[in-house]
């Protein structure tokens, strides 16, 4: 399991959280990546990155008007000044005592908790632990870019899966998507159209 944190928690509730991370950090999580947040009581919370924002401030706004900003000043603003990247994460489940749940987390993480990217093994263990019921929280939340998020997540899952398991994982996911959206034809088509990109 990777031990280098990708960022720290800025704010949270039981639906999701916002994470701050530095630009220079290698392997910064991408849209759709699965993250884990270990808690002091042994619980691990899981979530997907659904938004990545670059923050600014007064000085940065001034610097953009300069025709040629020196490389040192660009590096200074990227590396030394306050939290330049904010990632929004939606929770998809949690684990305690070796038992995984694909439901809402029992309590939000605390400010400045460390956040880690999930390894392939963790990703597969989580997704195969149930019947993809966590997709419900993604597809029913109107604030999330559901079609793109499910697609990015599936791309990561398929990339981690053994070749023989990929088709089964995809079939299971699509079955759950169809079941959840059977009464919402426009959104179902929206998700299937996006997912078709990785088929």
């Amino acid at each position: 399991m990777r031990s280098i944190a990708v960022g720290r928690l800025l704010r949270a509730n039981t639906t999701g959280c916002t994470v701050g991370c530095r630009v220079d950090q290698q392997d910064s999580p991408a849209f759709g990546d699965m993250l884990r947040i270990p808690q002091a009581d042994g619980t691990t919370l899981y979530g997907l990155v659904y938004e990545i924002a670059i923050e600014d401030d007064g000085l940065v706004r001034q610097l953009i008007s300069v025709p040629q900003v020196s490389p040192e000043i660009i590096e200074d603003n990227r590396l030394n000044r306050n939290v330049p990247i904010e990632m929004s994460v939606t929770f998809i489940g949690w684990e305690r005592g070796g038992i995984l749940s694909q439901t809402r987390v029992p309590h939000p993480p605390l400010t400045l908790d460390e956040i880690f990217a999930c390894e392939a093994e963790e990703l597969l263990r989580f997704t195969s632990s149930g019947r993809f019921s966590y997709l419900r929280s993604l597809l029913r939340n109107e604030d999330l870019p559901a079609a793109d998020l499910v697609t990015a997540h599936l791309r990561q899952v398929l990339g981690a899966a053994r070749p023989g398991d990929a088709a089964q994982l995809m079939q299971g996911t699509l079955n759950e998507v169809v079941a959840l959206l059977k009464d919402d034809y426009p959104q179902l088509m929206d998700v299937l159209t996006a997912v078709s990109e990785i088929l």
């Binding site: 000085l59 001034q62 008007s65 300069v66 000043i73």
Partner: peptide, 18 residues
């Protein structure tokens, strides 16, 4: 001073203050 945009002031001094 010209590194800082339309209101010239030495960048290193601004950062030292910050």
């Amino acid at each position: 001073s010209r590194q800082i945009g339309s209101v010239p002031y030495p960048y290193p001094l601004l950062r030292a203050h910050e």
